[in-house]
Design a protein around this nucleic acid. Structure first.
Length: 559
DNA sequence: AAACCTTTGAAGCGA
DNA sequence: TCGCTTCAAAGGTTT
């Protein structure tokens, strides 16, 4: 991984990758950056097809095959964009969440109404039309903030904000804040979600320190209800409510979170309208689904200290084993997952593709095409998610969820040949074809950046954009990248360095299907170089979040 | 009905 | 420290 902080790349991950990236990036950056973003979808689709058909073909040949294509239009994208621009404008005009403009965070972030980590029942897709919010930074200094957060709804705030949003109008960052609410169940929220957090060890309720709270977690049920929806200003262009808020108004399942200046700025700058899964059956008495849902398969906190008695009492159905009663605490979403949640709806809207596997491939490519700065946002969000998660569930371990799912058995073991996969995938890919034409996906929201790193800072700060572009051009078919190594960009964030993997994931080593090793030639040179420009840009964009801490790029060596 | 597929990233564990 | 495994989301597909 490139040593962003000026190192000599001492800590870089796969050096070879870096080098490759640099080389290719330099060569193709100019020619590719303008077209790649717009072609990503097409590329992916074609890649899906090509890969299945030509899985054995060399990447070089495919690269050669790759040719610039003009995208018919990006109307839908523009629409969405316009919509959000309008929404943002209104929002800013609204005043409540008025905030400074952060280029890096031109989005409106809405606090999540529910906890993404407690899994419970399932929510029908159709129900996922409610606005879900997460509060941005809640680092309220002092207890006053917390107190305020729990206090009755401010008079100037209204919780009667329509939150129903069309899926296609999901803001790009929606996923970041839109944790699935599918696991909500009616009933009393677990104690750990109540305003007071029980100390896992002592079992004594404690008031979480503001710093402990992630901006993306909703306030506790008690406090949440008091908080008006930040998107009250957000209404569809047609005047029809895009969002609907349950009678009870918004309720935040998480411990009291206070909003302070920084938070408000985040709210305004990072909140975005997004869909909220809102299963009627799981609605909290307030009308808002409670995040803490206990599903049969749900796993409870190791100590159970964080689970309120009511939570246990509300276990649906006949008594089950204790294990079954345990709430299943989901893993915090990583950056890519956040990105996926955000962009999935958009990709689906742009394409007729419905299969998640295909969508994910597209998303994976898009992810790589994101600028470093954009990715950094997600990494930062993910980091905060993890931080909050660890605070909410101190005793939780990723290990706790092991075995919850059926062990994935990939047949593509040693004996499986690439052909086997290609055949199998080919079939799937073929299915995608029909929609391909409909998928003339407009440039992604990120596309604009990619298309025109107008400003030096953008260009410098967004090396990834070009990089992705390169990779796409160079390796249009490399839907699956088997990382041969990892590079991490570490973006120091308050209290913790943020690692931004620029290489491919080393995980799922068993996933080689349809894969063509991602050429690390796609890596952008800037990744290797000192990050100062990016650092500055990142700092600027994350100013609100970091609130002071300069971004220093730290590279983690994976070699 | 459950697992699979697919993506990247984080975490855990064994060597 | 490295490499591998598992899980996180999502929803159509497959078993």
């Amino acid at each position: 991984m490139p040593q962003l902080n000026g190192g000599g790349g001492d800590d870089l991950g796969a050096n070879d990758e870096m080098i490759s990236f640099k080389d290719e990036g330099e060569q193709e950056e100019k020619i590719s950056e303008n077209v790649s973003a717009e072609r990503d979808l097409d590329d992916v689709k074609s890649s899906l097809v090509n890969e299945s058909e030509n899985n054995s073909s060399s990447s070089d040949s495919e690269q050669a095959e790759r040719r610039p294509q003009t995208r018919p239009d990006s109307e839908s994208y523009e629409k969405t964009r316009d919509y959000f621009s309008e929404a943002l404008r209104r929002h800013q005009d609204g005043g409540f969440f008025k905030s400074p403009h952060y280029p890096g965070y031109p989005f409106l972030m809405i606090p999540d109404l529910t906890s993404p980590y407690i899994s419970n029942g399932s929510l029908s897709p159709s129900a996922r039309t409610y606005l879900q919010m997460k509060w941005p930074l809640l680092d309220v200094p002092g207890s006053a903030g917390l107190k305020d957060s729990r206090s009755p709804t401010p008079g100037h705030l209204s919780n009667k904000v329509p939150v129903v949003q069309h899926a296609h109008h999901v803001h790009p960052l929606t996923p970041l804040i839109t944790y699935s609410n599918e696991h909500f169940s009616p009933g009393t929220p677990p104690s750990h979600l109540s305003p007071e957090i029980l100390d896992p060890k002592s079992g004594i309720p404690r008031t979480p320190h503001p710093s402990e709270l992630s901006p993306y977690y909703p306030l506790s049920p008690g406090a949440v209800g008091q908080i008006p929806h930040p998107l009250g200003w957000l209404v569809p262009p047609q005047g029809q409510p895009m969002y609907s808020i349950p009678p009870g108004g918004f309720r935040h399942p998480y411990p009291a979170l206070a909003m302070n200046a920084s938070m408000s700025s985040l709210v305004s700058s990072r909140f975005s309208p997004h869909m909220v899964t809102h299963p009627p059956h799981s609605l909290h008495q307030t009308g808002i689904p409670h995040p803490a849902i206990v599903s049969p398969a749900i796993k409870q906190e190791p100590s159970g200290d964080n689970i309120s008695p009511s939570m246990h009492a509300k276990s649906p159905g006949p008594p089950k084993k204790e294990e079954d009663k345990k709430p299943h605490i989901k893993k915090p979403l990583n950056a890519f997952m956040l990105y996926m949640k955000e962009m999935r709806a958009k990709v689906v809207a742009e394409c007729t593709l419905k299969e998640s596997a295909a969508i994910n491939q597209i998303l994976g490519r898009r992810w790589h095409s994101l600028s470093r700065e954009e990715q950094a946002k997600y990494y930062e969000l993910a980091r905060k998610e993890r931080q909050l998660h660890s605070q909410l569930y101190p005793g939780w371990s990723a290990r706790d969820n092991y075995g919850k799912r059926k062990k994935r058995k990939r047949d593509n073991k040693p004996d499986s040949t690439p052909e086997d996969f290609s055949i199998r995938n080919k079939k799937q890919c073929v299915q995608y074809l029909p929609s391909e034409k409909m998928c003339d996906s407009p440039a992604s929201s990120h596309g604009s950046m990619l298309d025109s790193p107008a400003t030096p800072s953008a260009a410098l700060a967004s090396p990834a954009a070009p990089a992705a572009t390169h990779s796409e051009q160079a390796q249009p078919l490399s839907l699956t990248t088997k990382p041969e190594g990892r590079m991490h960009h570490h973006f120091p964030v308050p209290g913790k360095a943020m690692s931004i993997p620029v290489g491919t994931s080393g995980s799922q080593s068993t996933t080689p299907i349809l894969t063509r090793p991602i050429p690390f030639t796609s890596l952008h040179p800037s990744m290797l170089s000192p990050p100062s420009p990016f650092h500055q840009a990142a700092l600027h964009s994350h100013h609100a979040l970091f609130q002071s801490q300069p971004l220093s790029l730290v590279t983690k060596s994976t070699d």
